[in-house]
Design a protein around this nucleic acid. Structure first.
Length: 210
DNA sequence: CTGTTGCGAAAGCGTCAGAC
DNA sequence: GTCTGACGCTTTCGCAACAG
């Protein structure tokens, strides 16, 4: 189990493992999957799901990870991690789009709350999903405008309490309940409570907006 | 080696009670 | 009425032990 050992030496080149995985080495693949599983999970977490199961999203994320492994070009500037992140996101977003298009899911089936909506190029989340239902898929319609987004954020800010807002942001960063509770000096249960309320409130208010 | 079983911790949900 | 904390409960997850 040399590979397993090397991975523990944090900074040893991950590229090597990725390269192995690309060549089909099952061990290397396994290591990557294990390493990135939580990563995928935290990515998937950014997409709240109302009334459906979250497993699908996580699985989509894993597919994105596979694609990343398959397509990664070592000579590229970006690290595997950021490349994988991109693939995972795209996969999830595409999956949601397809799902909302195919079935006639009610407007609020997916509520995406990916926070950094405009600091990276390809990401349109909340508005994205919402607008898909009313119109044909059209790239122009997917471009989120700053005013519209801040409108949404504003709306969320109105609805959520201070605590809820903070907890939500931490949660979307992929932090665990425990981490959040320590960070904010609250009980885990309080964090849990806050999140429950956040979900309920958003469920309610977002339906009202659209 | 593989599949299963059992267990503890964490996550998640519903509800009630108290403070403001 | 709203916000928050607390309790109980179920589900999920990771891991180790185990039998086959």
């Amino acid at each position: 189990m040399e590979l397993a050992d090397t991975i523990h030496e944090e900074y040893l080149d991950e590229e090597i493992i990725v390269e192995q995985a690309r060549k089909g080495d099952p061990k290397a693949q396994e290591i990557l999957i294990k390493k990135y599983k939580n990563f995928v999970r935290s990515k998937a977490r950014s997409y709240f799901l109302i009334g459906a199961d979250r497993e699908d999203i996580i699985q989509e994320g894993m597919i994105g990870l596979f694609k990343a492994m398959r397509d990664y070009q070592p000579d590229r500037v970006s690290s595997f991690k950021s490349f994988a992140e991109l693939c995972i996101k795209r996969q999830i977003i595409t999956a949601i789009k397809t799902a909302t298009r195919q079935k006639h899911i009610p407007l609020n089936s997916y509520v995406s709350l990916n926070k950094p909506v405009f600091d990276d190029d390809s990401d349109r989340t909340l508005y994205d999903v919402m607008s898909n239902n009313s119109k044909e898929l059209n790239p122009e319609h997917l471009i989120i405008k700053r005013e519209e987004l801040s409108h949404i954020e504003e709306k969320m800010g109105e609805v959520l309490s201070d605590l809820e807002w903070k907890v939500l942001n931490a949660y979307l960063e992929g932090k665990s309940y425990q981490e959040i509770s320590i960070e904010m000096n609250k009980h885990v249960k309080s964090v849990d409570n806050a999140l429950q309320r956040v979900k309920k409130k958003l469920e309610k208010s977002l339906v009202n907006i659209y």
